[in-house]
Amino acid sequence: MRRITRIATVGIASAALALSATACGGKTSSEAGSDGGTKAAIAYDIGGRGDQSFNDAAYAGLAKAEKDLGVKGTEAEPSEGEADPDKVQRLTSLARAGNNPVIGVGFAYAPAIAEVAPKFPDTTFGLIDDTSKTGKNIANMVFNEEQGSYLAGVAAAKVTKSNTVGFIGGVETPLIKKFEAGYVQGVKDTNKNVNVKVQYLTQPPDFGGFSKPDLGKAAAQGQLDAGADVIYAAAGLAGSGSIEAAAKAKKWAIGVDSDQYNQQGLAAYKNFILTSVTKDVSDAVFNLIKSVKDGKPQSGEIRYGLDKDGVGLATSNPAFTEMKDVTAAVDKAKADIIAGTIKVKTAP
C-alpha cells in the first residue's frame, strides 16, 4: 500500500526521540505497517501530485514500479509555501524509514540531497533535472528538454496563422531557459518571420510560478491579446492556467512534461492541446527503482534525449496527427537533431 505523507520540520526533542526509536529498532511513522519488502520513495516538487505535469509523471513511474516490481511506494508532498524549507528533514525521514531509492523530484532538491546522501551511503538518491550535486550514491536523471522544445517550435511555426506565438516559463531558471531556447530556435528555423513572445511568471527565489494557475492564465491572456495563437508553457501546475486561457480563446496550447492531452484534470481543454513536449520522467523513475531492486543501482549522470525517446512530442491529439505537413516537418527535425545536423541551443 502506498503511503502519502507530509513530513513537517521537527524540533530537537522530537528529532532525538525519532533517532532513539530507530536506533532501538522501533519504526518511524513512514515504516508503520511495513512487512520488510522493497520500498521506494519520491519527494515531490512544488505543486505536488496532481499538477497534471512534472510531479504526476514521476508518480506514474512509482506506480508502475509498484505494479510491475512489487515495490511499496511512499510519496512525500512538499510543505506549504513556496520556499519549502523542509527538504533535508523530508529526505532524511524517507531514507531512515528504509526506502531505497529516495528520489527528489526537481532541481530544488539538489542541496538537500547533497547534504543527506553521504549520511546514508547504502541508499541510492535520485535527483531529477540537476547535475550540480554528485556522489557515489546519487543518480542524476537529466533530459534534453531543449530538443523536445525545438520540435514544439517547429509545430508552432507551422500552425500559427497570426505569425505570433508565445512561450511562458514558470520561473526564470537555467533549466526553464532550456525550454525557451529550444522552442524559439525551432520557431525561427522553421519561419524566421514568426514573432515569439516570451514571459516568465516569477524570478528566484520566488518559485510560485510553478504552482499558481492564475499566473499562467493571466500571462497567456496577455499573449493572446497581443495576437499569439499558439502558446507553449513550461510552468508546472501554473501551465494549466495557460492551457485554460488558450482553449477558451479557441487557440492552440502546447503542454509540457506529461502528455497533457490525456490528463484527466485538463479534459475540458484537450481539443485545444495541440501536442505536449514530453519528458520520460516516468521511465527514469521506474528504471532507477528497478536498478536498485536488481542490485545494480544506477549512479552518476543518466541522460534522456530524443535518441532514446527520453524527450519527444506527443501525438495523442488526432487534429495534430492529421496535419501531415506539420508532422512531416517535426519528423525531419527530430531526425536531423539525432543525426547531429541540427544543434539545439541550451540557452536563449
Rank of each mutant, 00 (worst) to 15 (best):
D206Y: 11
A233Y: 06
S211V: 09
K197E: 14
Q185K: 12
L201A: 05
L175I: 13
K188N: 12
G186L: 07
A220L: 02
P174H: 07
A233H: 12
A220Y: 03
Y200P: 13
Q223L: 11
F167Q: 03
K197S: 12
D214M: 12
L215R: 02
I176M: 06
G209N: 04
G216F: 02
D214R: 10
D189L: 09
N195E: 14
K192M: 09
P174M: 05
K192I: 12
G222T: 09
E172L: 09
P204Q: 10
Y183V: 04
L224F: 02
V198P: 05
Q185D: 11
Q199W: 04
G222R: 03
D206W: 11
A220D: 04
N163I: 00
V198N: 14
G227H: 03
L175S: 06
T173G: 02
T202I: 06
G227S: 08
Q203Y: 00
D189Q: 10
L215P: 05
A218E: 14
V165Q: 03
D206I: 13
G166R: 01
Y200L: 13
Q223D: 06
L201T: 07
K217R: 15
D225E: 14
T202C: 09
Y183D: 01
K177Q: 14
V196Y: 02
P213H: 05
G182I: 13
V187A: 04
G186R: 08
G182E: 11
V198I: 15
A233D: 00
N163D: 11
E172N: 14
K177R: 15
I168V: 14
L175E: 04
E180K: 13
D225Y: 08
D206R: 10
A220K: 02
Q223A: 08
Y232M: 00
G166W: 00
G169T: 04
V184N: 13
G166H: 01
D225C: 06
I231S: 06
G222A: 09
T202D: 13
Y232L: 00
A220G: 05
Q199F: 09
G222C: 08
A220P: 01
K217P: 07
V194Q: 08
K197L: 15
A234C: 12
F207W: 12
T164L: 01
G169L: 04
G216A: 05
V198G: 12
P213L: 07
A228C: 12
D189W: 08
K192A: 15
Y200H: 13
F179A: 03
V198A: 14
G166Y: 01
G208W: 08
G209V: 04
G227N: 05
K217L: 13
V165E: 07
T202K: 12
D214Q: 15
S211D: 11
P204I: 11
Y183A: 03
N193Y: 07
A219D: 05
